[in-house]
């Protein structure tokens, strides 16, 4: 993890024209950025492309970064918005890919714990905003405040979404387990 001084020094170097410094920033934040894009898009190649595009945008907008927030928070917001615009653009294509992914997932489901499979299925029934909120919230090291900043939502709205999503997942899991028990 880079300290604030190191981060600022790298940003200064990038603004002075050193692309190697930007490579260090990309290397530092690539995994979080890619994970955010993956949570939005649910598809690795698309997420990789969106994350790359987000980093390129951030590079071009870097002059406008006012350093009031952490670079990472600012960057993740760009990555999130880029991934959302990819999702809107490729919605039709994504639907068919997601369908394919679900089929592949059900094949590997046999190897996993039943409860996990049921929760995973229940996730698909959550509304888009709630699903994203809970997935981003559970990415290690992201606080509620950071996710709110990233997604441009108010903290209270986000908290309600996270609680509601978890509540619905628990209810759905209970319902499925009851149904399963009855069919045995």
């Amino acid at each position: 993890m880079l300290s604030l001084q190191e981060e600022n020094a790298l940003i200064d170097q990038v603004l002075a024209g050193k692309q190697e410094a930007y490579a260090r920033l990309v290397d530092q934040y690539k995994s979080f950025a890619f994970t955010i894009a993956l949570k939005v898009l649910n598809n690795r190649p698309e997420a990789e492309e969106a994350a790359q595009d987000g980093f390129i945008k951030a590079f071009h907008y870097l002059k406008g970064f006012n350093r009031k927030a952490r670079f990472s928070t600012w960057l993740y917001r760009i990555i999130f918005n880029t991934a959302i615009s990819y999702k809107r653009k490729n919605r039709r294509v994504m639907e068919s890919i997601e369908h394919h992914d679900q089929a592949a997932e059900s094949e590997s489901a046999m190897e996993r714990d039943d409860k996990e499979v049921f929760i995973s299925k229940a996730m698909d029934h959550l509304n888009e905003a709630d699903r994203l909120a809970i997935q981003l919230y559970y990415i290690r090291e992201f606080s509620l405040e950071e996710v709110a900043e990233m997604t441009g939502q108010r903290i209270n709205t986000l908290k309600v979404r996270v609680h509601r999503a978890r509540q619905r997942l628990a209810n759905e899991l209970t319902r499925i387990l009851k149904t399963e028990a009855l069919t045995l």
Partner: peptide
């Protein structure tokens, strides 16, 4: 919900395409 890693060429691709501008 673990952190996922992108491909190994991720950083190179970003740096190579910096002059290209953002596609979206």
């Amino acid at each position: 919900n673990s952190i996922q890693s992108p491909s190994t060429q991720f950083v190179d691709r970003v740096i190579r395409n910096l002059s290209r501008g953002a596609l979206t």
